[in-house]
């Protein structure tokens, strides 16, 4: 029995090693001088890959909780866009264009981060409340709110990107910096730790698994499923808001049209990492590895000079392969 739990833990790791090996071999074949390969394996490239994992990774941690509880949130891409806009507007002191006042202080940045997180938490509350109280399946609810939040972001931004004065948040996603790598990376690491600990060692985490594994059982055991679901979507929203701040750092401005289709990458990261869309399964570390696998593939494709459509085909295939392997593993256990 121990062996089986161990097996399920290490499958995502094996996938990661496999993807790295494939990348190394592909690059080696493409370039016999070995120069590209040493670039790929360089510390600098590793940092690029890690930083590029941050936006999807943080949001995917929120999505992990939702998916474990048996739900889904399609609106996260729009929430990320909304967060960048809200962040930018807050930095501008409420205006869609930067005033020519003094540069924003650290306090202003902290304020803007909080506002972005609170707004996305509110988005999560709306998702959770609609699906729990009106008993509409979350797929439909978030399909609707995906459009609503996107429209709202565009309305707030006046239809175009919100420029901002230079501020410290724009350095969050640097490939270098005082800490060796942008703050975004550390935020991701802390989020993984926090979500991982919550899922495994707290009552809330236990309830998330229980609700996803069997909602009826959870109800029978006195768990207030509706209230917990709302909380789960809010937690997801908060992490998505944080992810939106990182997206802003990447762009340097608030962009209401960013992150279209991002929700699919986020869901893919969870699924590659062992999350099951029927609920009850998934882990924080697995999701991180899922996100990492996708950015490694992206980096490899760029190095090979492959066009984006190749990348899309590969990532799509990886999702199907990951789930296929997962099914086989389940069959082996049963």
């Amino acid at each position: 029995m121990k062996f089986k739990t161990l097996l399920s833990r290490i499958v995502p790791f094996l996938g990661l090693i496999f993807v790295v090996l494939i990348s190394v071999i592909a690059i080696r074949i493409q370039d016999s001088t070995g120069e590209d390969l040493s670039n790929f394996l360089s510390v600098d490239n590793l940092k690029i890959i890690l930083i590029q994992t941050v936006v999807v990774g943080i949001a995917a941690l929120g999505m992990t909780m939702v998916i474990i509880s048996g739900g889904i949130d399609l609106s996260v891409g729009s929430q990320v866009a909304l967060a960048t806009v809200v962040f930018a507007i807050t930095i501008n002191g409420g205006a869609v264009s930067p005033g020519d006042t003094e540069a924003p202080s650290g306090g202003d940045v902290a304020m803007a981060i909080s506002v972005a997180i609170v707004v996305c938490a509110a988005c999560g509350w709306i998702n959770g409340f609609l699906s729990a109280s009106l008993k509409i399946v979350p797929f439909i609810v978030t399909l609707g709110t995906m459009q609503i939040f996107r429209g709202f972001a565009k309305w707030l931004a006046g239809g175009e990107a919100v420029r901002t004065p230079t501020n410290s948040a724009q350095n969050f996603m640097d490939y270098d910096g005082m800490l060796g790598i942008g703050v975004g990376f550390y935020v991701l690491m802390v989020s993984i730790l926090a979500v991982g600990i919550m899922l495994n060692y707290t009552v809330m985490g236990r309830y998330i698994y229980a609700i996803g594994s069997s909602e009826n059982t959870a109800r029978l055991c006195g768990i207030n499923v509706e209230r917990r679901s709302v909380a789960i979507y809010m937690l997801c929203g908060m992490l998505t808001g944080l992810s939106g701040v990182m997206q802003y750092a990447f762009l340097g401005s608030g962009n209401p049209t960013i992150g279209v289709g991002l929700e699919l990458h986020i869901i893919a990261a969870v699924v590659i990492g062992g999350g099951s869309l029927s609920g009850g399964e998934g882990s924080a570390v697995g999701t991180f590895i899922g996100a990492l696998i996708m950015s490694i593939l992206g980096s490899t494709c760029t190095m090979l000079g492959a066009e984006t459509f190749v990348q899309e085909i590969i990532i799509g295939s990886i999702v199907i392969i990951a789930v296929g392997i997962d099914r086989l593993r389940h069959r082996a256990i049963n």
Partner: peptide, 22 residues
């Protein structure tokens, strides 16, 4: 519950979790 499969117990979760969930 009369229905162990879908209500009485969370089938994919382990014995310990199911014992203590309430």
């Amino acid at each position: 519950s009369e229905d162990r499969k879908t209500e009485g117990l969370a089938q994919q979760m382990n014995v310990a979790v199911n014992t203590t969930l309430s």
